[in-house]
Amino acid sequence: MYSDKVFDHFQNPRNVGKIEDADGVGTVGNPVCGDLMTIYIKVKDNRIEDIKFQTFGCAAAIATSSMATEMAKGKTIEEALKITRDAVAEALGGLPKQKMHCSNLAADALRRAIVDYFRKNGKIDKIKELGLEKELEKMEKGEMDDHGEYCEA
């Protein structure tokens, strides 16, 4: 069902927790659907200096959160934005097909944390420059669920 890497990240998740004075916070998912994750980032000199996550969900949801934070740690904002859902799944040695959409949300949570960082620091121009307007719009509207088509609730 799950790869050894998924089991490893589920059992020993990296970067679990909350950053109280985070520079950016991103949340996606919906508890009704069974997956909700929040990513917290600290940014220094355009680099993700620290990153933590909290996740409600299945093993895949926890493992993808853990892996995405590992991949993003120490990266520049631009590099971190290149982390896609597929890249996270690949780094975990693949995910079961039905879990690709509903549980693999960490890359989206990370993008939102970055948008939140820009928003809080008055860098709206960077949001436009990096093509993150859609994320910002959803966040302003308070839309949490990025996987509606798979969740009939």
């Binding site: 089991f7 589920f10 059992q11 069974g34 409600f56 969900g57 299945c58 949801a61 926890i62």
Partner: peptide
Amino acid sequence: EGESIVLSLDMAGIQASTGSACSSKTL
């Protein structure tokens, strides 16, 4: 979430089940 509970228990040598959507074929 139930699948996480079941997998955690299995790692400790305990087998159980869940009614969670995340563990069903249909989600």
